[in-house]
Amino acid sequence: MFRTLASSALAIGTGLAGLAIATPARAVTTAPKAQHCVVSVETGASLGCYTSLAAADRAGSTERAPLLVLARLFDRTGYDARGATLTVKGSRACTASTGNLDLGLTNLGAFGFDNRTSSFYTRNRCDLRGYTGYYFGGTGFAKYQDADVQLVKFNNNLSSIKLS
Rank of each mutant, 00 (worst) to 15 (best):
T62A: 08
D127S: 14
Y79C: 02
A27F: 12
T23L: 05
F120R: 12
P24E: 14
S61K: 15
S8Y: 07
C94T: 00
A45D: 15
D57W: 09
S97F: 00
G18W: 09
A11R: 05
H36P: 01
Q35W: 01
A84R: 13
V39G: 07
T62D: 03
R82A: 04
F120L: 12
D102P: 08
R82D: 13
G13M: 02
Y79H: 09
A34P: 13
T62G: 02
H36G: 01
T117Q: 10
A22W: 15
V38S: 12
A11K: 04
R58F: 06
A84N: 09
A34R: 13
S7G: 02
G83L: 00
R123G: 03
S61H: 06
I12E: 01
T29M: 11
C94I: 05
D75T: 03
L47E: 10
R116T: 00
T122P: 00
G104L: 03
G60H: 00
A93H: 00
A84K: 14
P32L: 07
A56L: 10
L68D: 08
P32D: 05
D75S: 05
L53S: 06
A9I: 03
A110T: 14
N100F: 07
S61F: 13
G48M: 11
R76A: 00
A22Q: 10
R76N: 15
E63H: 08
F120G: 05
I12P: 03
T51H: 13
A55V: 06
T14W: 06
Y121Q: 05
G112C: 08
T14V: 04
T51I: 14
F111H: 15
A9N: 07
G18N: 09
Y50L: 03
D127A: 09
C49I: 12
S119L: 08
V41R: 07
A45N: 13
L19S: 15
T23Y: 10
Y79E: 01
R116Q: 11
A96D: 13
L70M: 02
S97H: 07
A20I: 09
G99Q: 05
T85E: 05
T117R: 11
R64Y: 03
T95S: 13
C94M: 08
S8M: 10
A54K: 14
A71Y: 09
Y79A: 02
G99L: 01
T43N: 04
T14C: 09
D114S: 12
A55G: 04
R82C: 01
P24T: 04
G15S: 14
S118L: 06
S40M: 12
L53T: 13
A93P: 06
T122D: 06
F111W: 14
A93L: 03
D75I: 03
A27L: 15
